[in-house]
Computed example of a mutant assay.
Amino acid sequence: MNPAEFFVQPNKALDLSTIPTKVTPVFKSASQYSKILSEHISQLSEIQELLYASNSFSVLIILQAMDAAGKDGAIKHIMSGVNPQGCQVFSFKHPSPIELQHDFLWRTTRNLPERGQIGIFNRSYYEEVLIVRVHPQILISEGLPNVVDIGKTIWQERFNSICDLEDHLYLNGVRIIKFYLHLSQEEQRKRFIERLDAPSKNWKFSQADIDESHFWPQYRVAYEECMAATSTSEAPWYVIPADDKRNARLIISRIILDNLSQLKMAYPKASPARKKELNQIRKQLKAQTFPKASPSTTHAGG
């Protein structure tokens, strides 16, 4: 598998209808899938520890997709071996009244990962050029000045704001990796039916999910223009075939590993003064003695 084949070329027209939603799996059996995923998880755990120790970079992983594409499952499986202290997941739904009183980037930027951390955005500030574009009435509710005629200008302005933000973050050590889980309409339909039949999932399913799927063509255009305008070498977009959940997870985890392996990180080196301090601590520990514990006495019950 070559991760470059999933990379969205910057400023080049993108046509999602020409990109497959299912490709030849990178695994040949269920056991091989489990083995590869386990290897990826182990490698990611090691890199996360190094990321935390070096304390120079942070990583932001963004997942966007249509409903039922598998974002939650990807997060659950791929990040299962990462230390919870070094990883945070944020999901963004409809803005709250307080969030609507701020610029469209505010509610997500306040949750950016600190140095040494991995942050995952399940949906993100990109919703502001996706769902808001498909449902422009949301834009009206944001109280922006002089928003009367909603044309392409405002979306280009938002693309520029997003690119400026991601350039700024890159210069400050944040490495951004963005994934679009590319699902077919037929596969979404099948997964919706599976959700209806599963008590653990159908409680959160509603007519609104079906209604939203009717806007599929509008969302496709919004995603195409959004990714073409905001994919860069510093903050790349990857289109992941998502009809096969397991294959999608392996592709995503491989791309994350490839991106993180390019970071120049190392465990902190101890200075002479620090080494001297550690030696003193070692001597103290070796010199410690403790009274022997009295043997416990047991009595037979009866």
Rank of each mutant, 00 (worst) to 15 (best):
Q101Y: 06
R123Q: 02
Q207A: 14
S45N: 09
D72A: 07
Q117I: 00
Y33R: 02
I154S: 05
Q88K: 09
R110A: 12
L196R: 14
K292H: 09
S271I: 12
F90R: 05
N279D: 13
A198W: 01
I177Y: 04
Y223I: 03
A53M: 12
K190M: 12
V8G: 01
L260F: 02
K269H: 13
K76A: 12
P95C: 06
A229P: 00
G151Q: 10
I78L: 14
K190G: 08
L278K: 10
P84W: 15
S96L: 08
E128Y: 11
L63E: 00
S184E: 02
T21P: 03
Y126K: 00
I61L: 15
Q185H: 14
D72E: 15
A208H: 11
T153S: 09
E186G: 05
K71I: 13
S96M: 03
E194V: 13
Q218R: 13
Q288F: 11
A300V: 14
K12Y: 08
S17H: 03
S233G: 04
H299D: 12
E194N: 11
M66W: 06
I162Q: 02
S233K: 07
R115D: 04
D209F: 09
P145Y: 01
W237D: 03
L263K: 04
L250Q: 00
P20D: 06
L130C: 13
N11V: 06
R115W: 08
C226H: 04
K201W: 10
A208V: 04
I61H: 00
T21W: 00
D149N: 13
I255A: 04
K190Q: 15
S233H: 09
H182P: 02
V174S: 05
I176G: 01
P3R: 06
G119W: 00
E114R: 12
V23C: 13
N55F: 14
